[in-house]
Simulated assay, not measured.
Amino acid sequence: MSAHLYLISGLGADERMFQRLQYPPGYQVHFLPWIKPQENEPVSSYAARMAQSISADGPVVLMGLSFGGIMSLEIARQIPVHKTILISSIKHSTEKPFYYNWARKLHLHQLPDQLLYQRRGMIVKKFMSVETEEEAQLLTEYLSDRDFHDLRWAINTVLHWENEAVPADVVHIHGGKDHTFPIRFVKPTHVIPDGGHFMILNRAEKINAILQEVLG
């Protein structure tokens, strides 16, 4: 019986973020797309709706990138999951940088679109640690979406996310130079010292070696 590996990208991204990853034999790989969040929808409700797209006749493994990692943990509360793999993400409330709490209390995520989102390109590219023209082009495509409803919902969800219970079967792969979730706040199971938040593309060979270890 094959295991089923479900991939969840960062919000606003798609399956191209996983294009350089390689998986051991014995896995059926599926990309789990994002769905439209309802107005002020709790993350638990959203995860339950997203989990409805998971249909497997064998063990389920979730692998989430960035915000997709948070969603993987939330989905794992809804359905039986054999293993959860987080890449460039967080698994516990205490792993959020302290200044995220400042942003929440000051309601910075509620600033008008033209201040917070429309001119975010240069800042996002720095936080993502983009290294090549190909990566910059891909990120530009993701940033071209001008429907900010989903982005606002995601940022609000991250800022207010509370989680204390971390399953024992979580694999957490993190970069030592991640600017979005700095390593000094995070306690991963595997560290890629020179990896940034975009390491799933530019450090894929190192991630693949870890995946062979934890999925093989």
Rank of each mutant, 00 (worst) to 15 (best):
A103Y: 06
Y117S: 02
I35S: 04
H197L: 05
I183T: 05
R77F: 07
Q52C: 04
L73M: 08
L108V: 08
V158K: 05
A209H: 06
G68D: 01
L106T: 08
I35T: 11
R104Q: 07
P112R: 09
S66C: 12
S93I: 03
N101W: 11
V61K: 01
H92I: 07
E133D: 14
H179V: 01
A204P: 09
E15H: 12
Q19R: 15
A48P: 02
I54G: 01
F98I: 08
I192A: 01
P182N: 04
E162W: 02
N208L: 01
T132C: 12
K83N: 04
S89A: 14
A51Y: 05
W102Y: 12
V186P: 05
I183H: 15
M122Q: 03
E95R: 04
A13C: 14
F185P: 00
A47D: 10
I90M: 09
Q38P: 00
K91V: 05
G58L: 01
F181R: 10
F31K: 06
N40Y: 03
E141F: 13
M63I: 12
S72F: 05
A56R: 09
E15L: 12
I54L: 08
Y100M: 11
S89F: 01
L106I: 01
K96R: 10
F98H: 09
G12N: 04
A76N: 09
R16K: 12
G196Y: 13
T94S: 13
M63C: 09
A103T: 00
D147L: 09
L151H: 15
M1L: 09
R77V: 01
M1I: 01
G64F: 08
L73I: 08
R16A: 10
A103L: 10
T132N: 15
E213L: 14
P42T: 02
M71L: 15
G195C: 11
F148M: 10
E39Q: 11
G121Q: 14
S9T: 03
L32T: 07
K206E: 15
I90F: 13
M63R: 03
H149M: 05
S53N: 13
E162F: 01
E141D: 15
H179M: 15
Y6R: 02
D147A: 11
V61D: 02
S55R: 12
H149Q: 11
Q114Y: 14
N202H: 10
P42H: 07
D194A: 13
P59W: 02
L139D: 06
E134I: 09
A76L: 08
K177V: 08
L138P: 00
M17F: 14
R77P: 00
S9K: 08
S93T: 12
Q38A: 04
S89P: 04
R49K: 14
A51Q: 05
V43S: 06
T189I: 03
D150N: 06
F148C: 06
S55C: 05
G26Q: 02
R49W: 12
M122G: 00
E164R: 07
F67S: 10
T84M: 06
H4Q: 04
R104E: 13
Q22F: 02
K83M: 07
L5I: 13
M17V: 14
P33W: 06
G26L: 10
W153V: 00
G216D: 11
G196C: 15
V43Y: 10
P167N: 00
D113G: 11
I200T: 11
Q78S: 13
S55K: 13
